[in-house]
């Protein structure tokens, strides 16, 4: 009865000038669990909340290494992210083979941007249902990029995508000026604090559900800069960081499972 006639494909505008399929894809990103990225002058960190489909299952990975110097955080359809991730891996490897260097992060992000935009302009195609934060370090220093299913890409100082990510973004905006000169550890703590902001009541960061990844440029002894390779930290490796941002005034733990209103 009230069916929307303008959302069957991604080539038809609605009379209001909207492409519904692209907007729906952006919604898919908001269904994914939150990921946060922050860049300083020397490092980029990605932090993420992992979800398990059920109590008996393992947690779905959120952070992926693309190449020595690049990695991504995903929010949305994991299977679509796999396609983009494989593409990015191929491009980085191809670039390494033909030029013998790390692919500049901006060129890489531009490529997935173009690839995703094409899907929004062809009949029978659909946009990717995933948003990415791309973290990398190249000869121009560390970079953080946001990628949206519309094909939009933008370089960011700090950003968060996924469920309830607005809370994390509010934290990031409040502390924006501090990031540029943050050290590696401090940047991770800012990331985890932002992540905590977007958690639902009664949920907290644990070694099971928290992922951290770091990439950056490190000064060598002889003054030259070297890439600190992208590395993902999981499980016990993130324990110290989680404890370092533990809340003093921890609210009394509720009944836990099944109480989550928004587990998205």
């Amino acid at each position: 009865m009230f069916r929307n006639n303008y959302d069957n494909d991604s080539v038809t505008f609605s009379p209001q000038g909207r492409i519904f399929q692209v907007e729906y894809a952006a919604e898919a990103v908001k269904q994914g669990s939150v990921v946060v990225g922050i860049a300083s002058k020397t490092h980029v960190v990605l932090v993420a909340i992992k979800r398990n489909a059920e109590e008996l299952s393992s947690y779905q990975k959120k952070l992926f290494q693309i190449d020595e110097h690049v990695g991504i955080a995903i929010a949305g359809l994991t299977s679509d992210a796999r396609v983009l991730s494989n593409f990015m891996k191929q491009q980085c490897l191809g670039h390494r083979l033909t030029y013998g260097r790390n692919m500049p992060v901006r060129s890489l992000v531009d490529m997935i941007g173009s690839k995703a935009q094409i899907n929004t302009q062809h009949y029978g195609k659909r946009p990717y249902g995933v948003g990415l934060l791309v973290a990398g370090a190249d000869e121009n220093g560390p970079h953080l990029f946001e990628f949206q299913p519309s094909g939009m890409t933008e370089e960011m100082v700090a950003f968060a995508i996924g469920a309830r990510s607005q809370m994390a973004r509010t934290y990031l905006e409040k502390n924006l000026d501090a990031f540029a000169n943050c050290g590696r550890e401090e940047l991770v703590r800012h990331g985890l604090k932002a992540l905590k902001e977007s958690l639902v009541q009664d949920k907290e960061l644990t070694v099971e559900n928290t992922s951290v990844a770091i990439v950056g440029v490190a000064k060598a002894k002889d003054g030259t800069t070297k890439t600190e390779p992208f590395k993902v930290f999981d499980g016990q490796d993130v324990n110290a960081w989680i404890e370092s941002v533990a809340d003093d005034k921890e609210p009394a733990a509720g009944e836990g499972e099944g109480m989550d209103v928004d587990d998205a």
């Binding site: 030029y99 013998g100 260097r101 500049p104 190249d138 000869e139 121009n140």
Partner: peptide
Amino acid sequence: PPGTLNAAN
């Protein structure tokens, strides 16, 4: 600028 193709590349 940094990051442009050098002679080795």
